[in-house]
Design a protein around this nucleic acid. Structure first.
Lengths: 133, 133
DNA sequence: AGCAAACATGACGTTAACGTCATGTTTGGA
DNA sequence: TCCAAACATGACGTTAACGTCATGTTTGCT
């Protein structure tokens, strides 16, 4: 009745495969599931939460390496002033990069709208001349 | 004195390698440079412009395949109503996807800011207790 | 004509983020 | 206790977007 699930349940709920979980473990994105001796691994709800967070961050275009740098601060507080300052710097850097991306995407959006408008005008003209009921 | 440049000049100006140009040609992102018989290829300013545009679109996270679908409309007008309508649909789809991405990034941005604020508060408290000039 | 620099082409290598397969071990239920 | 389902581990495969070599051909200059 505690949060002991095996890899199958975990991956089913997270929508990933066991391969992915093991891969993430090796990269340091997930703490390796506990186990007694050399048997199977058992995971908790936190592992699930981490997997979901990783999914979100991936969606944003972060690489697994990028994610490894920030994932911990979602689940553990680094202790001591030095680590916190380091994390803070990292966060600010990510914020700057994010703003860059948003800006680029907004410019791209304008571009697209301009093109769309152009095509719509063109098609509108034709339909006046030609297809007028 | 016309716009005839060979691949070396082109790639130097565009900041890519010949390999990249040939790769793009094969994918249909760039029209193959003209040539007489079986000699070398010659490119124009438009090729350069296309390369630059491709670079921008890549920055936005579009794959080369995505780019292949839209790159032409930056440089050539598709003729006929059908093609234009098709392109228009494509553009609208890209617009929707772009909006999704922007939204996700903005949510991520808020997340980051929240975390940053949290760390800043923590660090501020310590410096009051401890480091007060 | 001769030659070095630039180009063409093909083949194999690389990184990220897993997929797939083979083989052996654990578990939980009848 | 026995067995099928689930798990563990290692190895090889895959896609995207090129990099890097090796080898042979073209060009531009002297």
């Amino acid at each position: 009745m505690n949060g002991r699930m095996r890899i199958g349940d975990l991956t089913e709920r997270a929508g990933v495969t066991p391969r992915t979980v093991r891969y993430y473990e090796r990269l340091g994105l997930l703490p390796p599931g506990e186990r007694e001796g050399h048997g199977q691994h058992y995971y908790t709800e936190e592992t699930l939460a981490r997997l979901e967070k990783i999914g979100q961050l991936k969606q944003l275009g972060l690489s697994l390496e990028d994610i490894r740098d920030v994932i911990d601060l979602y689940f553990t507080d680094p202790s001591g002033i030095k680590p916190k300052q380091k994390v803070l710097a990292l966060l600010r850097q990510h914020l700057a990069e994010t703003d860059q991306k948003i800006g680029a995407l907004q410019r791209f959006r304008s571009d697209l709208q301009a093109h769309i408008a152009r095509f719509e005008r063109w098609l509108a003209e034709r339909s006046e001349d030609t297809g007028e009921r």
